[in-house]
């Protein structure tokens, strides 16, 4: 296994008006293997989205650097494709045009119709090619976003709670679809979530963020075979272990609530 992405000593402090600051991340060191499915787990406001945005190049860290294949990341790049919690489809484009959007931006239009069709089949939206985003459900929209991200042949897929606003049935379906695609395409995934079950269901490794500013508290490999069932004993054991660690982290902080900006 080769190292795909590495975060070295990443810290991020946001500056607010009236000289107030929010220290979000502190000295994050993280190495992600090629083909890994890494899950970043943490509560709301724990800085996990910030970390993902820094890896994508969208946000500059206050300190430290991100490397991909040994090169320092200086800005966003289609090889690290981002997926957001809310669908980010352009409402004036049809499903087809939305999927092709990134490729058209980059002038990569060879066999584009055929490729778009292949992805529409893959996300099971055949027949919806000419629908507008306002005519789709959230789950369908999120699948279109996934197809658009995959069209660029990303080496790394960065997912920011992509299934967070879906009902549990749609979510299970999409987790399964994502796993299938990941196994077939063998790209690297960094997946942010606050859902324990989701993390254990899809991740090959879970990183626990905690504290304020957030640090990596634990790195937990998940060696279960797919498909994983939340009712399995092994699954339950891992879940109990992670929950224990969360409880300990909260006690260390002296509070069960994590409010961003509470630190000086």
């Amino acid at each position: 296994m080769t190292q795909k992405i590495s975060a070295k000593n990443i810290s991020k402090t946001y500056f607010l008006p009236k000289k107030r600051t929010v220290a979000t991340l502190k000295e994050i060191d993280l190495s992600i293997e090629e083909g890994e499915f890494l899950v970043i787990l943490g509560g709301s406001g724990s800085g996990k989205s910030t970390l993902l945005n820094i890896i994508s190049g969208m946000v500059t860290p206050s300190c430290g650097e991100i490397c991909m294949d040994g090169n320092i990341v200086t800005g966003p790049h289609p090889s690290r494709s981002l997926l957001f919690q809310e669908p980010s489809l352009l409402p004036w484009l049809t499903v087809e045009e939305n999927i092709a959007f990134g490729c058209r931006l980059r002038g990569d239009t060879k066999d584009i119709d055929e490729r778009v069709n292949r992805y529409i089949n893959m996300i099971k939206l055949t027949g919806y090619e000419n629908y507008l985003p306002s005519e789709l459900s959230v789950g369908m929209s999120q699948r279109v976003c996934l197809a658009r991200a995959l069209m660029g042949n990303p080496e790394v897929l960065l997912m920011d709670e992509p299934f967070g606003s879906l009902d549990s049935f749609t979510r299970m379906g999409l987790q399964e679809e994502l796993l299938q695609i990941w196994k077939k395409r063998k790209f690297t995934v960094i997946f942010v979530t606050h859902d324990l079950d989701e993390a254990i269901t899809i991740g090959s490794r879970v990183v626990l963020l905690g504290g304020s500013p957030a640090e990596i508290k634990h790195r937990i490999p998940i060696d279960l075979t797919h498909p994983r069932n939340p009712m399995q004993q092994d699954f339950q054991k891992i879940k109990a272990g992670i929950m224990d660690r969360f409880m300990t982290m909260m006690k260390e902080n002296g509070t069960t609530l994590q409010t961003p900006g509470s630190n000086p």
Partner: peptide, 22 residues
């Protein structure tokens, strides 16, 4: 919507493409 801009930037859009296409 700032998400559209983030998405387009992530997909590799230049400033002029951001203006014309988003």
């Amino acid at each position: 919507n700032p998400r559209w801009l983030m998405m387009a930037k992530n997909q590799g859009a230049r400033d002029s493409q951001l203006i014309w296409m988003v």
